[in-house]
Amino acid sequence: MNVEALLQAIPPIAVYLLVGGVIGIESLGIPLPGEIALVSAALLSSRHTLDISPVGVAAAAAIGAIIGDTIGYSIGRRFGMSLFERLGNRFPKHFGPGHVALAKGLFERWGVWAVFFGRFIALLRIFAGPLAGAMRMRYPRFLAANATGAVVWAGGTTAVIYYAGIAAERWLSRFSWIALVLAVVIGIGATLLMREQTSRLIAQLEAENDWETLRRH
């Protein structure tokens, strides 16, 4: 199987649409591997044999994030916190009470900064838009934090991976596709690690809530 020929057959516009689509849907509140899609596309853009632009990748990711979060904000504002109760009943692994309580606690503590930094954190990347709307955060403030976070996250991630890919291509020569596989593996590992840390925080939060309930009774 000729990996190089397969990569060259992929139209750049398809890469941009895929990145923007995956990140946009993830920002709506649907758990998808947005970060892995961005990292993979950014690495592809570092290959001089392909026509994929790093600027195009970053722009697609930022636009997808902003649009997805805005739609998620509108949905959250329309249905309120009851939205998360329904989602929790259907998808307890992603929208369970512990997940919602942790995200809500971070929003109450950090406000718009939770929206900005939420783009860099797996849990908040899914919750940021809908939760900000449900908590009635003013839209201009949300939009400013959301857009800024999306541009910094998309641009910064793309730049780092792009230059890392160029360096890897110099060292690996014909076998530079290994870097793509390595990036995906690292991305998956980081995602799993973040989920494990989030689960621990949720378990700790639930234990504290149970203790508080027992103390009141």
Results as ranks from 00 to 15, higher is better:
H94L: 14
F127T: 02
R138A: 13
Y163Q: 05
F107I: 03
K104N: 13
F107V: 01
M135C: 05
A134G: 02
E169M: 14
S173D: 15
I67D: 07
L143K: 12
A147C: 12
A62Y: 00
S173V: 15
S173C: 14
A144R: 14
A59H: 08
V184Y: 07
N146R: 14
L193Q: 10
F91G: 08
V181I: 15
I63Q: 00
G111T: 03
V160W: 04
A150T: 02
L192W: 15
R86K: 12
A60W: 01
I52V: 10
A159D: 03
R119D: 09
V151Y: 01
I67P: 05
S82H: 15
F117E: 04
P92I: 06
A128P: 06
W171C: 06
A145W: 07
V112H: 11
L87R: 08
D69E: 13
F142D: 07
H94G: 13
N146F: 13
I161Y: 12
F91L: 13
T148Y: 15
L192Q: 15
A154I: 01
N146Y: 09
V100I: 14
P140L: 12
A145E: 04
L143S: 11
F120E: 02
R77S: 10
V100T: 09
I178G: 05
L193N: 06
L102S: 02
G68D: 06
A114C: 09
G155I: 00
R77L: 10
I52F: 08
G111W: 10
A128I: 11
W110G: 02
I178H: 11
A179G: 07
T191D: 10
Y139C: 11
I52S: 02
A159L: 02
F79T: 01
F142A: 06
L193W: 14
L106R: 04
A58P: 01
K93M: 09
V57I: 08
R141P: 09
A61M: 01
G68F: 10
R90T: 04
F127A: 00
